[in-house]
Measured scan of single mutants.
Amino acid sequence: MTSCHIAEEHIQKVAIFGGTHGNELTGVFLVKHWLENGAEIQRTGLEVKPFITNPRAVKKCTRYIDCDLNRIFDLENLGKKMSEDLPYEVRRAQEINHLFGPKDSEDSYDIIFDLHNTTSNMGCTLILEDSRNNFLIQMFHYIKTSLAPLPCYVYLIEHPSLKYATTRSIAKYPVGIEVGPQPQGVLRADILDQMRKMIKHALDFIHHFNEGKEFPPCAIEVYKIIEKVDYPRDENGEIAAIIHPNLQDQDWKPLHPGDPMFLTLDGKTIPLGGDCTVYPVFVNEAAYYEKKEAFAKTTKLTLNAKSIRCCLH
């Protein structure tokens, strides 16, 4: 018999989150649709729960009410004593943790798909938090293969000092899905179709896995975050240069030392320094102006996964 890495157990509980950011409308629209008619997301033997994560922000069509829901799922915020004085999103995070967690427990949901849009030209993107997770690498390989020839990129946010504390991190297997470009507060049919297909293929993978299909060893190309880059700023902290036209919409493309990065209003080009080629992502993302992030630098690498098969009882 072929030796293989056996994944822990079959997958039982899956959640699909929309509206973690209330103005990213593809996930909101799909989740609302699936709450009314969820036939397309159901798979035999699998509990799939669509869920609106930040209903107040969705109602106002804004990213958040008090603070970013997708950055506060750490033990400090989840452990705060519940009171009306807490920011709305912290209270909501505790409610979500109660419903789908608790985080880092045996009772937490197996998989959470968190649906997002970006204003950046990132196409279909899967966000991975753990480079050693054979199950998710296999799932992402399946999704990428199923979507081809449509490109699907994998963004690895594993980093020693950049801690995200994402909404989906309460699950055993957290999956971020990011599709763009799409303006905030807008629905685009092409973007919706791409996100819908990503979810379909992900659920198909889980179904095949649960039925005992063995997935042979595989490898995927990923883009691992190195650092986030702020806009150049003046002495008052105001933005002093904008994304250069040569960099705009060039997510995932190589940016070499000396290539144009920013452009000042008086026409001066600010190039990339250093001696390493990087791959920019979230270029000129609207939501990241407040976070002082013009783009993120990534490096390209390959992740390998062992063969996996479900432990059938």
Score class of each variant (00 low, 15 high):
2 T>A: 12
3 S>Q: 14
3 S>M: 11
4 C>Y: 12
4 C>K: 14
4 C>I: 11
6 I>S: 15
7 A>G: 13
7 A>K: 12
10 H>P: 15
12 Q>E: 14
13 K>W: 01
14 V>T: 00
16 I>T: 06
18 G>C: 02
18 G>S: 05
19 G>N: 03
20 T>S: 10
21 H>C: 12
23 N>S: 09
24 E>H: 08
24 E>Q: 09
24 E>A: 07
26 T>V: 02
26 T>F: 01
26 T>H: 04
26 T>A: 15
28 V>F: 11
32 K>Y: 01
33 H>M: 06
33 H>A: 09
34 W>I: 03
34 W>G: 04
35 L>Y: 07
36 E>P: 00
37 N>I: 01
38 G>L: 14
39 A>F: 10
41 I>H: 00
44 T>F: 08
46 L>H: 02
47 E>L: 09
47 E>Q: 13
48 V>G: 03
52 I>M: 11
55 P>A: 11
57 A>E: 02
58 V>Q: 06
58 V>I: 10
59 K>G: 12
59 K>N: 12
60 K>C: 11
62 T>I: 12
65 I>L: 11
65 I>G: 04
69 L>S: 06
70 N>C: 06
72 I>F: 10
72 I>R: 10
72 I>Y: 10
73 F>E: 12
74 D>L: 10
75 L>R: 13
75 L>W: 13
75 L>K: 11
76 E>L: 11
79 G>K: 12
79 G>F: 14
82 M>R: 13
83 S>F: 12
92 R>I: 11
95 E>L: 10
95 E>N: 09
96 I>C: 07
96 I>R: 06
96 I>G: 06
98 H>Y: 13
98 H>T: 14
99 L>G: 08
100 F>L: 07
101 G>M: 06
101 G>S: 07
101 G>F: 06
101 G>I: 01
104 D>G: 15
104 D>L: 13
105 S>Q: 12
106 E>F: 11
109 Y>K: 01
111 I>Q: 05
112 I>P: 05
113 F>G: 03
113 F>W: 01
113 F>I: 10
114 D>E: 08
114 D>W: 00
117 N>D: 09
117 N>H: 03
117 N>Q: 03
117 N>P: 03
118 T>P: 02
119 T>Q: 00
120 S>W: 02
122 M>T: 15
122 M>A: 14
122 M>S: 15
123 G>L: 02
123 G>V: 04
125 T>Y: 01
125 T>L: 01
125 T>D: 06
126 L>V: 02
126 L>C: 03
127 I>Q: 06
129 E>S: 10
130 D>E: 07
131 S>Y: 07
135 F>A: 05
136 L>M: 08
137 I>S: 05
138 Q>V: 05
139 M>H: 03
141 H>E: 02
141 H>K: 08
141 H>Y: 08
142 Y>G: 03
142 Y>D: 00
143 I>M: 06
144 K>T: 10
144 K>V: 14
147 L>G: 01
149 P>C: 00
150 L>S: 10
151 P>L: 00
152 C>Y: 05
153 Y>D: 02
154 V>T: 06
155 Y>Q: 14
156 L>K: 01
157 I>E: 15
160 P>L: 07
160 P>V: 08
162 L>C: 14
163 K>S: 12
163 K>F: 07
163 K>L: 08
164 Y>F: 13
169 S>Y: 06
169 S>C: 09
169 S>L: 00
170 I>Q: 05
171 A>F: 01
173 Y>S: 07
174 P>Y: 15
174 P>R: 15
174 P>K: 15
177 I>V: 09
179 V>C: 13
180 G>S: 01
182 Q>W: 05
186 V>C: 13
186 V>K: 04
187 L>C: 11
190 D>Y: 03
193 D>V: 11
195 M>S: 08
195 M>R: 04
196 R>V: 05
196 R>Q: 06
196 R>D: 04
199 I>E: 03
200 K>T: 11
201 H>Y: 13
202 A>I: 01
203 L>S: 01
204 D>P: 05
205 F>T: 03
208 H>P: 05
210 N>F: 00
210 N>W: 03
210 N>V: 07
210 N>Y: 01
211 E>W: 06
211 E>P: 05
213 K>L: 10
216 P>W: 02
216 P>A: 09
217 P>Y: 03
217 P>V: 02
217 P>S: 09
218 C>H: 01
218 C>L: 02
219 A>E: 15
219 A>P: 00
220 I>W: 01
224 K>M: 00
228 K>G: 08
229 V>W: 00
230 D>C: 11
230 D>K: 12
231 Y>F: 14
233 R>A: 07
235 E>D: 12
236 N>H: 12
238 E>F: 06
239 I>R: 10
239 I>E: 01
240 A>N: 15
246 N>P: 02
248 Q>I: 10
248 Q>C: 09
249 D>G: 11
250 Q>G: 12
250 Q>T: 07
250 Q>M: 11
251 D>K: 02
252 W>R: 07
253 K>D: 00
255 L>T: 01
256 H>Q: 11
257 P>C: 01
258 G>Y: 06
260 P>R: 01
260 P>F: 00
261 M>N: 01
261 M>P: 02
262 F>Q: 04
262 F>K: 04
262 F>L: 03
264 T>H: 06
265 L>G: 08
265 L>C: 10
266 D>V: 00
266 D>F: 01
267 G>Y: 03
267 G>H: 07
267 G>T: 02
268 K>H: 10
269 T>E: 13
269 T>G: 02
269 T>L: 07
273 G>S: 12
274 G>Y: 00
274 G>W: 03
276 C>E: 15
277 T>E: 09
278 V>R: 02
279 Y>V: 00
279 Y>P: 05
280 P>L: 04
281 V>N: 00
281 V>D: 02
285 E>I: 03
286 A>E: 08
287 A>L: 09
290 E>A: 11
290 E>R: 09
290 E>I: 08
290 E>K: 11
290 E>C: 09
290 E>D: 13
291 K>V: 08
292 K>G: 15
294 A>T: 05
294 A>H: 00
297 K>N: 07
297 K>E: 03
299 T>Y: 10
301 L>E: 09
301 L>Y: 08
303 L>C: 06
303 L>V: 11
307 S>D: 05
307 S>V: 02
308 I>K: 02
309 R>S: 11
310 C>K: 15
312 L>Y: 15
